[in-house]
């Protein structure tokens, strides 16, 4: 447990340098620059969003072609049965709609949410991590994990109230 963003940031850099892989920082808000300190890679959410957007645009165009130019050809004001121009506004809206859903679903899948059961959530002082304190959690499945050494490392970095959580 750390009291300021600067402390947890320095500690995170050291934990990364110590070679841990399965560990995390819990903070009440996203700390600017923590990704670099932790060595987290750039988020993959944009790829999912792009796929969603392309799907949405194609769905719009295909739907309008099918309904107005194939299944139900109705002459209205001498306008063509299909043109990408009049199909554009609806396809544009569907692009945005599908992108939004893809982004959110992608974010949930990448984060493994919803997960209502997690050792961190059983920690009695978790309410401080969603309020005003900063925590580093190192998982026991990490190949470098060693109860004594890990505890010593965290204590060395200035961590307070170091606790072992049960799975």
């Amino acid at each position: 447990m750390f009291e300021t963003p600067a402390d947890v940031m320095r500690a995170a850099e050291k934990v990364r340098e110590a070679g841990y892989k399965f560990w995390d920082v819990h903070s009440p808000f996203p700390i600017h620059g923590i990704d670099r300190a932790m060595g987290t890679k750039r988020s993959k959410v944009p790829r999912i969003s792009l796929a969603g957007g392309i799907t949405g645009f194609c769905t719009g165009m295909a739907m309008i072609w099918y309904t107005d130019a194939f299944a139900y050809r109705l002459t209205v004001g001498g306008k063509p049965f299909f043109s990408p121009l009049f199909a554009f506004p609806v396809s544009y809206e569907l692009t945005i709609l599908f992108t939004a859903f893809a982004t959110i679903i992608g974010m949930f899948i990448l984060n493994g949410l919803p997960m209502h059961y997690h050792p961190v959530l059983k920690y009695p002082d978790i309410d401080r991590a969603t309020n005003d304190l900063f925590y580093i959690v190192i998982e026991s499945r990490d190949p470098k994990f060693n109860p004594q050494a890990t505890r010593a490392l965290l204590a060395d970095l200035g961590g307070q109230a170091i606790t072992e959580l049960e799975e």
């Binding site: 819990h26 009440p28 923590i34 993959k44 992108t99 982004t103 997960m115 209502h116 059961y117």
Partner: peptide, 25 residues
């Protein structure tokens, strides 16, 4: 809350998702 636990690895994806949502909104 979907089991949100303020993990920094989650924040990373979350901030990106929020930025994209802002970008398309």
């Amino acid at each position: 809350a979907m089991g949100w636990r303020n993990s920094s690895r989650h924040w990373s994806n979350y901030e990106m998702a929020y930025l994209i949502l802002a970008g398309i909104a």
